[in-house]
């Protein structure tokens, strides 16, 4: 599964970068996020309640920031272990480009895959849900930072 997108955010690149590294902001922007805990340097653990087709599930995702080039880019590595249900994993390469002093262009490219029972039975549902979640994250992020900047 691959997906790309682009947002123009009304905030300076530094501000966007800060937000992208702020667990509280991340928590607000992940739909259904119950908690986001810092587990190490550039490492978080997120508990997320997601609805996939007819199934509601709570899962724990391990998030790691890789290839960090502040304040320009990083890769957000996400792994979810679903036990007997299999696994989901993905990475989002995020790049920030300065458009102007208080406008930043955020582009992302997501790659993901699922395995085990998730892929066997739910691949179409899960892929669609994952796409939606990813898109919603960046959308919410763009709105969130725009709003916080506006305040």
């Amino acid at each position: 599964m691959e997906q790309s997108g682009e947002y123009t955010v009304s905030a300076s690149r530094e501000r966007v970068w800060e937000a992208l590294n702020d667990p509280e902001v991340l928590e607000r922007c992940v739909e259904g996020c119950r908690s986001m805990t810092v587990t190490g340097e550039g490492e978080f653990e997120a508990v997320v309640a997601a609805k996939v087709g007819p199934v509601k599930a709570t899962f724990t995702a391990a998030i790691e920031l890789q290839d960090v080039v502040a304040p320009e880019s990083y890769r957000l590595q996400v792994g979810v272990k679903g036990g007997a249900a299999g696994f989901a994993k993905g990475s989002a390469a995020v790049q920030l480009a300065e458009c102007s002093r208080d406008e930043t262009r955020l582009t992302y490219h997501i790659e993901g895959s699922i395995g085990g029972k998730l892929a066997q039975i739910g691949s179409r549902l899960v892929q669609a849900a994952a796409r939606k979640m990813a898109a919603s994250f960046f959308e919410r992020f763009a709105v969130d930072i725009g709003r916080s900047q506006g305040v």
Partner: peptide, 14 residues
């Protein structure tokens, strides 16, 4: 099987 070796026709739905 998809390119990562996941069986995607793994139920009577597929």
């Amino acid at each position: 099987y998809d390119e990562t070796g996941q069986l995607v026709s793994g139920s009577y739905m597929d």
